[in-house]
Design a protein around this nucleic acid. Structure first.
Length: 328
DNA sequence: AATTTTGCCAACCGCCCCACG
DNA sequence: TCGTGGGGCGGTTGGCAAAAT
């Protein structure tokens, strides 16, 4: 069955609005208001879908809209709110007078996301990439780390590739990887020991970065005697302090003055604790769900779904089996 | 100068929520 | 209580302009 469409698409004009159409719509709404969007195009003499009229009005024609560049303060607000509420653009836009959800969304997707990535911060979680990777890796026992790291790679790869290749971040290895035994002369490295900027190479760099993040995290969080023999992201070789050297320029310490973690308490409130990789749709019930979860019932109810990440570190709302699957 | 790529943003699509009968 | 339709929302696309090659 399905729903009937909001209008007959055959008789409806689509695409860019002309100034005449804008005038018709504006003057009609000025006289009659925005009571019934389905009737507005008919009554205003427009061959448009009601929904299209509503969008045009709310995103462009409304007299209280700002049309210029986003200010520094607005940018900060967006970043701080996004850290808390995620992609709930209408909610964020409500805090920015004169801005629409579409404006905010576009601005985020075209500018802010890249800005954060360029700073080494994951735009989804608002945490540094290196911290995220270490956090993920150290949450699991070693046999599972390689798979999870691979999955993490899938999540961050696009952003990292952008960072490494498009933005031309100067990533240099102090000890370039030796060509494999067997004399493959087509080394990916040039004479300076720096890899060419191909996608495969970028992925390799991400792997190295992940390995390093794990290593750094181990060094800072556990006594040397207790440190485990972690497997690197590619599941290839055990990590030791010898096979990686120096600091990782691909994961710079962010120079960043907004502070998502000061805006919320780590481990609570943020939807990203519920879903790290893919945003689960967060609807109007979000707050209620948070209440339920904070009261401790919901995880246990999920058919025994492995609370892989406990209340201190809930990173994914996927079952552990899925997390182990690199495809997922 | 011509062509290709990239960035931007307006507009569309489809799903969901909620009010109302 | 249920079905229906309007409106809201977030994700995605298409087209244009600017930048790069």
């Amino acid at each position: 069955m399905g729903r009937i469409p909001c209008c007959e698409k055959d008789n409806v004009k689509r695409g860019q609005w002309t100034p005449e159409e804008d005038n018709k719509l504006s003057s009609y709404i000025a006289q009659h208001g925005t009571r019934n969007w389905r009737l507005i195009p008919k009554n205003a003499g427009l061959q448009r879908c009601g929904k299209s009229c509503r969008l045009r009005w709310t995103n462009y024609l409304r007299p209280d809209l700002k049309h210029g560049e986003f200010s520094e303060a607005e940018e900060q607000t967006i970043m701080r709110l996004h850290a808390v509420v995620g992609n709930r653009w209408s909610l964020i836009a409500a805090q920015l007078p004169g801005r629409t959800d579409n404006d905010v969304k576009n601005y985020w997707n075209t500018k802010l996301k890249k800005k954060l990535s360029g700073m080494g911060i994951d735009p989804v979680t608002h945490k540094p990439f290196s911290h995220l990777m270490a956090e993920i890796a150290t949450t699991l026992p070693p046999p599972h780390v390689a798979h999870l790291a691979e999955a993490a790679l899938g999540c961050f790869k696009d952003e990292m590739l952008h960072l490494l290749t498009k933005k031309r971040v100067n990533f240099q290895l102090h000890h370039p990887i030796e060509p494999p035994p067997g004399g493959n002369t087509s080394s990916p490295y040039n004479s300076a020991g720096v890899k060419d900027e191909t996608e495969d190479n970028a992925v390799e760099k991400i792997r190295l970065g992940l390995s390093r993040a794990i290593q750094e995290h181990n060094e800072t969080t556990m006594p040397v005697s207790a440190s485990k023999c972690w497997v690197d992201a590619a599941g290839m070789a055990p990590l030791s302090s010898g096979n990686l050297n120096g600091s990782c320029s691909a994961f710079p310490e962010p120079e960043f003055h907004y502070s998502p973690t000061s805006f919320m308490n780590e481990g609570e409130g943020s939807p990203w604790n519920r879903s790290l990789c893919g945003e689960t749709r967060l609807n109007g019930k979000l707050q209620d769900e948070n209440v339920e979860e904070s009261e401790g019932g919901k995880d246990d109810e999920r058919n025994g779904s492995n609370t892989l990440f406990n209340s201190d570190c809930v990173l994914w709302d996927l079952p552990a089996d899925d997390l182990m699957n690199p495809i997922v």
